[in-house]
Design a protein around this nucleic acid. Structure first.
Lengths: 336, 336
DNA sequence: CTAAAACAGAAAATCGTTTGCTTTAGCATG
DNA sequence: CATGCTAAAGCAAACGATTTTCTGTTTTAG
């Protein structure tokens, strides 16, 4: 049988209250008694039951993370950041994968609420209206990762995607490129896609670069997606010297197909990724990209969340973390 | 205020017992009453408190995963496999990163036990005696990932590392290579390292290949580790035509350094990895490696665990899952 | 030397469920 | 008519902690 607090109390000849005080380091207990209790705990091998404790104190020291897919290195980093901060404050993480599936999201949120998570981190590329409503109504504190709150009721931690895309484009334009393609996420209307596109278009407009809808290709995220988009691009016969990809995996897939077709990267085609997934500097060519501090996003979101779970009311707000444009070998200036 | 079961009971004019029965789909309740209760639940927005429920029924439907580092794609896959199976059986996952640190491991295990996880999956490259003892004594069910149980009290899901290494070596030997180097994990005495080394040595011995201790280099896992080990190897002036790396990241780092020194891979040096991390087929050259079904290891371990949490006593045992040697461009036959 | 303060520890209520045991009521049976 | 049976629903005792309140014992001050 599992040993519980009364067993320890009997063993030490004190009441359960006293044992509880010792366990929770509350003063008001005689040193000699404390010793006796500690000895009894050691002897019996008592481990407090966190479930019972949580029921009583109405706190679980658990935060739930809703993330599209832990398998995506981009999201993995966020989780690691969150977990590390949790470790510091004695919290734990319940992980759920949502695969961008609204049904899975609803279910996951429900479970996290029922399991009484003190806080919830929602990570995604977008936030549907229904989900937003559910998150606002949730009894737990909520922080969004990678997307902003626009309701005034939640908080978000993210980079400025529009600015990041703009700055990347400007760098590339400086190199003389004028004919661009965008390899984007299937989910066109997603928040992140929209922002990035705005940034690219702003830069194009400023530099009088022609760009129309036919120059954006949509496909699956991931290497295969990038591979196929490049296939489509080359086969379509459209003229381009540089491609902006939604992420580094797509860029890598695109590079692969282009090279298979005998194109030289970056001599014939320049390619940019996004996110600075760690592999980006170990490929050949290395990938030009925009670094997002994923680890920090997870860490900061968690820190905010834990603070919100504490006493004081915390102001809700969007926190923008810095990005960084990283020029590497996958782009080259246009010879003129 | 959060709505609880008594509120629903009042709203529906029934006892809490009846509400509980409706919520848990227990028959014995009149259809008309059930309707009324369901309506009351909807009206009040009642969500059962899983913590209270767990305390009462002594089950949390939660399993804990202890994993070295979620950031390592190898381990990530395991978690995803576990999470997917959990979804099917209405379980959730508490994730902990242990970084191969015994202290973190102890702490994590303790928390998982205190939070009353029904089961625990321990993933690592090795199992210290103390940890083994703690796991055996744990009140939760335990399954090991990637390492076997040798106590008879636990279960494990893993590949046969010795055989895998042996088969890989045999393939390479067939190509005429005779001068090998091993790039291994710093933690020499780890179970997995030992097994793999046994496999390689067995193959070498069978084919009368000379091999001594000086031909194994130890370094950090990861790309940088591989990079430095290759640096060391080349600078040492030792003669070799093929390197077996402990994992694909090391192989990738090694390739990078070799190429920077003007070596052609695989023409000058053949390099093998291990694990078939997904990037392995997207690099140039693609990496010869041994595929471990990481996702399946997580999924199978979880399935076993959940079964063990059920009624019947489950036999403990080690389950060996199939591996696959994958020959790719990073190795080439020796010209003779 | 006594009253009051300070302190240790015990008792008991509570957190939100589940569930074994009753109760109730309607109906059939001997 | 008393009894038994069954279905439906309620009562109340857990589950294992925390914490408020209360009690009894020492100090301490006047």
């Amino acid at each position: 049988m599992k040993v519980k607090i009364v067993d320890v109390a009997k063993e030490a000849n004190v009441s359960v209250a006293t044992v509880s005080r010792v366990v929770n380091n509350i003063p008001l207990v005689n040193e000699e008694t404390r010793e006796r209790v500690l000895a009894a705990i050691k002897r019996t091998g008592y481990k407090p039951n966190a479930i019972a404790r949580s029921l009583k104190i109405q706190r679980t020291n658990t935060i739930g993370i809703m993330i599209p897919d832990i398998t995506n290195p981009y999201y993995t980093e966020i989780v690691r950041g969150a977990e590390d901060v949790c470790g510091i404050y004695n919290y734990n993480i319940i992980l759920t994968n949502t695969d961008f599936d609204p049904e899975k999201e609803r279910k996951a949120l429900n479970v996290l609420i029922e399991k009484q998570c003190d806080g919830i981190i929602y990570v995604g590329k977008d936030l549907s209206e229904e989900m937003q409503k559910e998150l606002i109504d949730a009894p737990s504190e909520v922080v969004l990762g990678c997307i902003p709150d626009n309701s005034g009721f939640l908080s978000g931690v993210l980079i400025n995607n529009e600015l990041a895309a703009y700055e990347l484009a400007i760098e590339i334009l400086k190199m003389g490129h004028r004919k661009f393609l965008l390899f984007f996420d299937e989910v066109e209307e997603g928040y992140i896609s929209q922002e990035r596109k705005k940034g690219f278009l702003k830069a194009f407009k400023e530099q009088n670069v022609e760009f129309d809808a036919s120059r954006t290709l949509y496909g699956k995220l991931g290497l295969t997606g990038g591979y196929h988009m490049m296939e489509q691009a080359i086969n379509s016969g459209i003229d381009f010297t540089c491609v902006f990809c939604f992420n580094d995996q797509i860029a890598l897939g695109a590079i692969r197909y282009a090279e298979e077709q005998g194109k030289k990267i970056p001599a014939d085609i320049s390619i940019c990724g996004f996110n600075n997934f760690w592999i980006a500097e170990w490929t050949r060519p290395q990938i030009t990209t925009v670094a997002q501090p994923m680890y920090d996003i997870g860490a900061i979101a968690t820190r905010m969340l834990i603070k919100m779970c504490g006493k004081e009311e915390q102001a809700v707000k969007n926190v923008f973390v810095p990005h960084e444009v990283i020029i590497r070998g996958s782009v080259a200036p246009i010879e003129s």
